[in-house]
Design a protein around this nucleic acid. Structure first.
Length: 338
DNA sequence: CATCAACA
DNA sequence: TGTTGATGG
């Protein structure tokens, strides 16, 4: 998923508290997928309510958002709209991989291969319409705004950062940088202590920030050339050149300056190349949004999570108290929050 | 991912 | 106070 150019970029580790008072545009699809694949029981089954509805994403939103809001972050979720047509083969491929994983999950479970089963269970995760709808409902009740992008969420989020309506984008993908976001935070929604499998070692996964301009300066390339590098490696919209990884791509673009010249020299083609480049540079975005953070509607959260999805009222109430305390009501963050 | 209780 | 393993829904 996304583009594999991370090794080329300048990344620096930060603390969540370094994002205090920042408006962070969260790549909703990316984050929800992360929650769905990670928040699972040991056998790989996601959290579910008594009716069988998946609730892993709701757990993730409630607790993780409470924690980052408590650290002073003002999150806004940005949801995907209609993907561009050149994404259809990638989408189809993902569907196939997912269906495949479901079969392998069942197979591994039957054979008692726990580790394999877990891996394929994770790969079976899907952010479907219900997941999106439930997430929006919970966010609204928690007082956290969201934006519906006309096209790709990361493109909309990048636009919001460039416009000054948000400070940074949170996503595990690097696509936001191709869409021109000056700052991208990774590991914001997956940070914490992670146990290394089979070993007695705990790894501290901390958020890291990528500065687009610094990365470009360090590499000595333009933004357009970074897009060209990504196109060589492969994006959600094209396959990439055979045997070309980030390092080779950088070399090729340094040598030939543009992807057009690379392709000419190698007598290769990338379908829809001009359209895709244009899309990265000026994607379809909207100004039709308003960012307003409200105090949580505790009753709504409780009736939705506890009444409808079997969450423990004790736990939800505790999270709500923390959320309410940090989102205003006498705290020092009051005027910044509203 | 998170919380929680049990323990050193 | 911090680590650990089980559980959450």
């Amino acid at each position: 998923m996304g583009v594999d150019i991370g090794d080329l970029l300048q990344r620096s580790t930060i603390e969540v508290s370094d994002l205090s008072l920042d408006i962070v545009a969260i790549d909703a699809f990316n984050t929800l997928y992360q929650f769905l694949s990670i928040i699972r029981q040991r056998d790989g089954t996601p959290l579910k309510d008594s009716q069988g509805n998946v609730t892993s994403h709701l757990s993730g939103i409630l607790y993780r958002m409470t924690n980052i809001v408590e650290a002073g972050v003002k999150p806004v979720f940005v949801f995907d709209g209609k993907p561009p047509e050149w994404k259809s083969s990638t989408i189809q491929k993902r569907t196939e991989t997912r269906e495949n994983a479901k079969v392998k999950w069942a197979d591994a479970k039957e054979k008692g291969l726990a580790e394999e089963a877990y891996k394929y269970a994770q790969a079976s995760s899907k952010v479907d319409a219900t997941i999106v709808e439930d997430s929006k409902k919970l966010l609204t009740a928690m007082g956290i705004p969201f934006v519906d992008a006309p096209s790709e969420g990361e493109a909309q989020a990048a636009y919001m950062v460039k416009k000054g309506d948000a400070d940074k984008i949170a996503s595990q993908d690097y696509d936001s940088l191709l869409f021109g976001s000056p700052l991208v935070v990774r590991n914001l929604t997956v940070s914490g202590k992670r146990k290394l499998p089979k070993k007695n070692i705990y790894l501290d996964v901390k958020p890291e920030i990528i500065n687009l301009k610094e990365s470009l300066d360090e590499l000595g390339i333009s933004h357009s050339q970074l897009i060209d590098i990504a196109l060589c490696v492969g994006t959600d919209y094209n396959e990439g050149l055979e045997g070309v990884g980030p390092k080779t791509a950088l070399k090729l673009i340094r040598e030939h300056e543009t992807i057009e010249k690379v392709l000419k020299a190698k007598d290769l083609e990338i379908p829809n190349l001009e359209d895709i480049k244009e899309f990265f540079k000026s994607p379809d975005v909207t100004d039709d949004y308003s960012l307003k953070w409200n105090k949580p509607d505790s009753e709504a959260v409780i009736s939705f999570l506890c009444g409808k999805h079997d969450f423990s009222e004790d736990r939800v109430t505790k999270a709500l108290e923390r959320l309410e305390a940090s989102s205003g009501s006498g705290q020092s963050t009051l005027d910044k929050w509203f």
